[in-house]
């Protein structure tokens, strides 16, 4: 039982059952803890990563599902000027407790890749991640700011 996939551009092999949630495989076996556990049932988005570039909720995704595919976590995104999402997030000081923010940034990055200029309605429909600190106003502003920068 093992699953080989690409994690932030590097090949890795997970030694364990196929049905372990990708979130825990990444957090515990590859020591990348930027992706968080919030609900375990695909509701909150704290665990969001990219699978072949698209946002997925990894607490409900079996690691076997990503065999041979490319997984990107928050740690795999560039944090320099080439990443308008980070720039916008930092400029607007979006996080409060910060716990949901990795997931928010992953969801936003994936949204902007498909829709470089999202309307408020697009945001409402796509960014369904939850933030208990309710940083939503700054998140929305940061998504628009990132779209302008890109």
């Amino acid at each position: 039982m093992s699953v080989t996939f690409s994690l932030n551009g590097k090949p890795v092999t997970f030694d364990g059952p196929d049905d372990v949630p990708l979130l825990w495989a990444v957090r515990e076996h590859f020591s990348l803890t930027g992706s968080k556990f919030g609900c375990g049932i695909g509701m909150c988005g704290a665990c969001t990563m990219h699978l072949d570039g698209a946002a997925v909720r990894t607490c409900v995704m079996a690691v076997g599902h990503v065999r041979g595919r490319a997984v990107t976590t928050i740690e795999g995104l560039p944090t320099d000027e080439t990443n308008p999402v980070h720039q916008a997030w930092n400029e607007l000081d979006v996080p409060q407790c910060g716990y949901c923010q990795s997931g928010m940034i992953m969801a936003t990055t994936s949204l902007l890749a498909r829709n470089p200029n999202p309307t408020d309605q697009d945001i409402d429909q796509t960014i369904t991640n939850l933030c208990r600190c309710a940083t939503y106003i700054r998140i929305r502003a940061a998504i628009h700011a990132a779209a302008r920068r890109a």
Binding site: L32, S35, T73, I74, E75, H86, W89, D93, S102
Partner: peptide, 9 residues
Amino acid sequence: DTAAKTNGS
């Protein structure tokens, strides 16, 4: 703490 909370660290 913003930088640490946006890059996953």
